[in-house]
């Protein structure tokens, strides 16, 4: 199962890779990274829809914001789940995200336990 992480902070990649080291090693999980909304859309368009099942995206990014990306994914790839990750845990962002079809909303610093549970749920569903 493949998930896509979108964040303009490059160290997020290393952090996710290390956090999900075991799952990745045992090939339960594949993690891809995009450092902007544009890059994420390009990747999804390229790889074809059945590949990535879940996108975790930051909200505050230069260029396309996470919320714009969410709307784009939902209109072009409606079967892909999207959750937001943001340092700004305010109601406005939360409401917008949920209204646009986000599955979850995680605030930074990310509680990796809850993120792991979310992904474990996906894995058991499969």
């Amino acid at each position: 199962m493949k998930i896509l992480i979108v964040d303009d902070e490059q160290d997020v990649e290393i952090m996710f890779l290390q956090k999900f080291r075991r799952e990745i090693k045992s090939k339960l999980l594949e993690v891809e990274f995009a450092f902007s909304g544009q890059e994420a859309l390009e990747y999804l368009g390229r790889s074809g829809s059945p590949d990535v099942v879940y996108v975790f995206s930051d909200i505050n990014m230069p260029g396309m914001s996470g919320l714009e990306l969410l709307e784009n994914i939902k209109s072009r790839f409606p079967h892909i789940q999207v959750s937001m990750i943001s340092a700004y845990g305010d109601k406005e962002n939360y409401n917008k995200a949920i209204k646009s079809g986000a599955k979850g909303f995680f605030t930074k610093p990310v509680d990796f336990e809850s993120l792991k549970n979310e992904i474990a749920e996906l894995l058991t569903d499969k």
Partner: peptide, 21 residues
């Protein structure tokens, strides 16, 4: 605070990860 929060998250997360490792 916002600008510091992000790098600080990395510091905390990576140190925690390294402890686990």
């Amino acid at each position: 605070a916002h600008e510091i929060k992000n790098p600080l998250n990395f510091v905390n997360n990576f140190s925690e990860l390294s402890q686990d490792f």
